[in-house]
């Protein structure tokens, strides 16, 4: 018998396959029964019709959906622009906090205060402060668009989080990498730029994706400043019909975008872990 191919006893293979098929059937059967029971119980509850009509009204859903989708386009634009600037702020602040020479002390202090302050203040407060505060100053040449200031507030708030993520990522690179780089004569800055940062970025992609999923939802906070993004749109629809289905429709739209991103983040995390395990066995 040759040992260079995996060999499994055919009888055992058949029985494994049978058992696997049986497990799938049991799982599906149990799930169907569960859904049926929950559905029956809920639909028999005395108030169910009112609930269904208020939150899950099909006509309301269909009529509000197109407008919600077009309002959501604004959330997506805020999200994309904010994300780009958050990454820039995060990397710059994280690197600034690694500067060691005494001459850079002011920069390090500013970067530290920035992360401390903006991680401590609720995002919605920053949005209110900038969105209403800056236009109230009525400064010459300073735009007073709510969307602009709402986005800036998101960038400042999330930039502080992302800077900390990058900082942890830099710290997670083994110190021998810095030593090897400095031994070649690379400066501290060059070492950060060419050796530590690229490795840190790989390590932090999964946690960054989680932050961006949460940013996607927080674009709705900009609604308190007035621009008609999806939450504002749903609010308007709701107040006209006294029916809450538009909120549910907005929730469905958010979920439709976050679920693929969450799955992607999970997949990426699993892949990174697998690569690390593989690397650790060398």
């Amino acid at each position: 018998m040759s040992f260079d191919v995996a060999y499994v006893d055919p009888a055992r293979a058949r029985s494994r396959k049978r058992r696997a098929r049986r497990d799938v059937l049991i799982g599906l059967g149990s799930l169907a029964a569960f859904v049926l029971v929950v559905g029956l119980v809920v639909s028999q509850l005395p108030g169910w019709h009112v609930v269904q009509d208020t939150f899950f009204n099909v006509d309301e859903f269909v009529s509000s959906f197109p407008q919600l989708i077009s309002a959501f386009w604004l959330n997506i634009r805020i999200f994309i622009v904010a994300e780009v600037f958050i990454l820039i702020v995060g990397i710059v602040v994280a690197l600034a906090r690694t500067l060691q020479a005494p001459i850079w002390l002011p920069i390090r202090v500013v970067a530290t205060i920035y992360t401390d302050v903006f991680r401590g203040v609720p995002t919605i407060l920053v949005i209110l402060l900038l969105g209403f505060g800056i236009p109230a100053l009525d400064l010459q040449g300073v735009p007073n668009s709510e969307v602009l200031w709402g986005t800036v507030a998101l960038v400042l708030s999330y930039g502080a989080y992302v800077a900390e993520v990058f900082r942890a990522g830099l710290a997670s690179v083994h110190p021998s990498q810095r030593m090897a780089s400095r031994s070649l004569g690379l400066s501290s800055w060059q070492t950060n730029r060419h050796i530590l940062l690229p490795q840190a970025v790989r390590n932090v992609v999964p946690p960054l994706l989680n932050d961006f999923i949460s940013l996607q939802k927080d674009t709705a906070l900009v609604s308190i400043l007035g621009p008609i993004e999806i939450l504002r749109r749903a609010q308007i629809d709701t107040s006209m019909s006294f029916n809450y289905t538009p909120y549910v429709a907005a929730a469905v739209i958010f979920i439709a975008l976050t679920i693929p991103m969450t799955r992607f983040a999970d997949w990426l995390q699993a892949r990174t872990q697998k690569q690390r395990r593989a690397a650790a066995t060398v």
Binding site: S176, M179, A180, S181, S183, G185, I195, P198, R202
Partner: peptide
């Protein structure tokens, strides 16, 4: 950095840049 330019060092654990 001038010193390190003129003196090469190799470590027990290679320390190549993996990326």
């Amino acid at each position: 950095d001038d010193v390190r330019r003129r003196v090469g060092i190799v470590f027990q654990s290679f320390n190549l840049f993996p990326h």
